[in-house]
């Protein structure tokens, strides 16, 4: 069997660019300084649901408003996770595990408060009609919730009529649709047409297996998204006032 030292035939760029700093070390530099808040943020980073609730309880017992902890502590912890993910120091399962812990924390804070918590905005997520591949949608949904959005998850294989009816009822800031197969992705076109016919100009953010930027660019409401982690950033951009053209300028990479 032939074997060679591959140093002249391939470059493992992931090792070349690897940070010397461990993610935990980097996170320590990013946590909020207040000891109570820091404890909650750290528990989110570590994805420890029990510790998140325990740390929240401690802080609430010391007189802090539960709802304020959603933004000040839970979101702060998730921000550390997102930052390290963007730096390539954390991987998707780390983000998912932290996000689940954070969502638990949000629910706990809501239960502890008598006031209503306002989300950053409402988003509808779904997998197109005829398609049951939903791992991408699951990832997007968790990431959006972890970033403070209320997600109306319509599930998989969702008929066009149901998507349109949900948009009319819920009035979301955007839709997030995924499709794996070329044969199902034309459902995006139908959603686009039906929404336009009703004078609804909500961005339809589309991604998944066979979906391409060229395909989505053909539809007035379409915004192509290649990376699940970009979906919360698109939502943030919509809140900052970016319209579909500017969203395309920012997030269309090809």
């Amino acid at each position: 069997m032939i074997d060679i030292n591959p140093k002249n035939t391939l470059i493992r760029y992931n090792i070349l660019v690897e940070s010397d700093m461990a993610p935990e070390e980097m996170a320590e530099k990013l946590y909020p300084t207040d000891p109570h808040i820091r404890q909650i943020a750290k528990a989110v980073f570590e994805g420890d649901e029990d510790e998140v609730v325990a740390a929240l309880q401690n802080t609430i017992d010391s007189g802090v408003d539960p709802l304020s902890l959603i933004n000040d502590a839970l979101m702060a912890g998730m921000e550390v996770v997102s930052t390290l993910y963007d730096y390539g120091l954390l991987y998707l399962p780390d983000v998912i595990i932290s996000a689940q812990a954070m969502i638990e924390g949000i629910e706990y804070c809501k239960e502890q408060s008598k006031q209503v918590h306002e989300s950053k905005g409402k988003i509808i997520s779904y997998v197109v009609e005829g398609d049951i591949h939903d791992i991408g949608k699951k990832i997007v949904t968790v990431l959006l919730r972890a970033n403070g959005y209320e997600v109306i998850d319509l599930g998989k294989d969702v008929p066009v009529e149901e998507v349109v009816a949900a948009v009319k009822k819920e009035k979301p800031i955007m839709l997030s649709g995924t499709a794996l197969m070329t044969t199902t992705m034309h459902a995006f076109k139908d959603v686009n047409s039906r929404l336009l016919a009703s004078d609804i100009n909500v961005p339809v953010v589309c991604g998944g297996g066979a979906v391409t930027q060229d395909f989505i660019s053909d539809y007035d409401l379409g915004v192509y998204c290649e990376e699940a982690a970009d979906v919360p950033k698109i939502a943030d951009s919509i809140l900052q006032g970016l319209d579909i053209r500017k969203l395309r300028d920012t997030f269309h990479k090809h």
Binding site: Y13, N14, V17, Y85, G88, L90, Y91, L92, P93, I135
Partner: peptide, 16 residues
């Protein structure tokens, strides 16, 4: 293949 595609390329930090 789901694992392989989520893992992606060398610089995709999604799945080990």
């Amino acid at each position: 293949n789901t694992a392989m595609f989520v893992a992606g390329g060398l610089l995709d930090f999604k799945l080990s």
